[in-house]
Design a protein around this nucleic acid. Structure first.
Lengths: 347, 347
DNA sequence: TTGAAAGCGATACCAG
DNA sequence: CTGGTATCGCTTTCAA
């Protein structure tokens, strides 16, 4: 790849020259004190006593200049940051995961961490890890699988006090928050089996990014009916109407009497296509989704689903806090338990 | 308002002292050269010529130590960062906006920007702005309204070369990417009117965070039928089944013959409730949503909707790049045009 | 109670 | 070709 350097065009001298960013030295000058004093006052340092008059002068000067401290300089001096780095997930995030992330972010914010989302483009594996390490995050939360023990080690050696994999793993040396997709599949499979179904289809999204989730879910269904006469059929499906219609068109040929649709969105997609094809749900084919989204309750028949008790964002934030305080502790491994079938009308 | 600076809590010394993070000085020592030489080699500085032997020794030493440069130190020295700061939106992001953000993030990543999502908790207005400014971002993308001209000024004075409001505004001095919610409402209103409807309801989500969007949409409907005999009725609605059922129960009393549901998700919610109540859609009541989500196509009747042509994340990333290169340029104001009615079966 | 100065890690100028 | 050295903005010891 050729090395290209972007030329930054000089800005035409503005009519009013760009005001230079004020530093603590500027504040000190204006207040007629030293930079040390400025730092003491603005940080409310307890170990030194500064006269009220001086404090006031300093604060006034800071206000007047619009002084804002420089986070990078501060954390350089301090030797550590409060950055929690979260690489963007490699899979399309559904509403469930999106909500989880939002909550997590708020929780971390409340603990005074700064969340940095890193959109690692074109970097893979350990290259990406190096890019993350440049920011010297105090903690790293990695969604998905792309993390090796070497990666964990590099992060720790560059100062990360906590490395947590979210939704997969476990990886040596890292804490893990496991979303047990296998159990989701098992519950769905067991439910369908108990309702008397024996020829079970399992929708597997075509999106390759979702394979990390869909494969364990499929495997879970297989495990649920192992040793019985029931069969499990894999049904690849893209997330669009045409693909669903094609699948529904050959439904009779498939000879299935039940289907687990990966999640509620795919459930809606397939159920609609089946109904358009004249397939009775649940009479002919029982159908169950997962994730317990609002839309499932609105479908007719109301959608049966597997609800996963996600840990709250607060819980994960607490884990981060714990790990940061005590980096020596052995890796925790939390599994999101409580996958339960919500039986409604479609199964 | 008093000037307060947030104190960063100190973390206690770890039980096992972390292995010290290697610096360029360590690399220099191991390679038997000066720090300057290390910098030259690792950055491929073109202006100096270093012997191949030395280059190799330096690279080898860096690899051996697992050296990773310190981004904060680098940008402190450089005087600028590649940070694009994006405060977390104050409204619940739907699938449309979530997708837009993900795309934007990838696009910015491709331009070598680092996206920092800031979950501003408990901070409001200019306090939040000060917190953002501490990171010395080169650009700030603000979703929603909470930005004053003073805020923009503070950000610029602390080094931000581009400030862009997304989805609202405009704010003096900032670029704006406007999502024209008024037009969405107008299109919906006009469509219903042209289909012969005269008593139009407009769903307004109870979520206060959505008011920034829902109010202009409502106003747009009002504007569309201004000067005609048609009436517009505001229908507050929480996003849950019970609220929808209550609303549907008094549908006859409301005497409406059409409804614009804010978006497709609320459309699904309300349509289901109306159908359960025996209200024929579109026979008795015409219904139109917005955002053209996949789920709308799957409903029966298929949902009419207003599709908004969102600018791509790439476009916004390009705007950022332009603004960063030429901060002196006057603020651009882009309006997402192309709100078009997609007429399906529900209206 | 305040100030001078060292130093966090990386870079770029200027000598040699 | 390579090595000192000043510098970015801030915190914190040590002296005064």
């Amino acid at each position: 790849m050729p090395y290209v350097m972007v030329q930054i065009p000089k800005t035409p001298a503005p009519a009013f020259p760009a005001p230079t960013v004020p530093t603590s030295a500027d504040v000190a000058r204006l207040a007629g004190v030293s930079r040390a004093t400025v730092s003491y006052v603005l940080n409310n340092t307890g170990t030194v006593r500064i006269s009220e008059a001086t404090r006031h002068r300093v604060r006034e000067a800071a206000r007047e200049l619009g002084y804002v401290p420089h986070a990078a300089a501060r954390s350089l001096r301090a030797g550590h940051s409060r950055i929690v780095l979260m690489p963007a997930p490699s899979f399309p995030a559904g509403p469930l995961f999106t909500g989880f992330l939002a909550e997590l972010q708020r929780a971390l914010g409340r603990l005074e961490y700064t969340v940095v989302q890193y959109g690692a483009v074109g970097l893979s594996g350990d290259d990406a890890v190096r890019a993350w390490a440049e920011l010297r995050p105090v903690a790293v939360l990695v969604p998905g699988t792309d993390l090796t023990p070497q990666g964990v080690d590099l992060l720790k050696r560059s100062g990360a006090r906590a490395v947590v994999t979210v939704g997969s793993g476990p990886v040596d040396g890292a804490h893990a928050l496991l979303l047990d997709h296998g159990t989701i599949g098992r519950r769905a499979g067991r439910h369908l089996y108990e309702r008397g179904r024996r020829r079970i289809g399992v929708v597997v999204p075509a999106d390759p990014g979702l394979r990390v989730f869909s494969e364990p879910r499929l495997e879970g269904v297989r495990r649920a009916v192992r040793g019985t006469a029931a069969t499990v059929t894999e049904l690849p499906l893209a997330y669009d109407e045409e693909a669903a219609a094609r699948l529904a068109a050959r439904w009779e040929l498939l000879g299935l009497d039940a289907v687990f649709t990966y999640n509620d969105e795919y459930a809606m997609l397939l159920m609609r296509a089946l109904q358009d094809e004249g397939v009775d749900v649940p009479g002919h084919t029982a159908l169950i989704g997962a994730d317990d989204l609002m839309l499932g309750r609105l479908l007719r028949p109301r959608l049966s689903t597997v609800r996963l008790e996600l840990p709250s964002g607060r819980d994960l934030a607490a884990l981060v806090e714990r790990a940061v305080h005590d980096p020596g502790a052995p890796p925790e491994r939390h599994t999101a338990l409580g996958a339960t079938v919500v039986h409604r009308e479609s199964s």
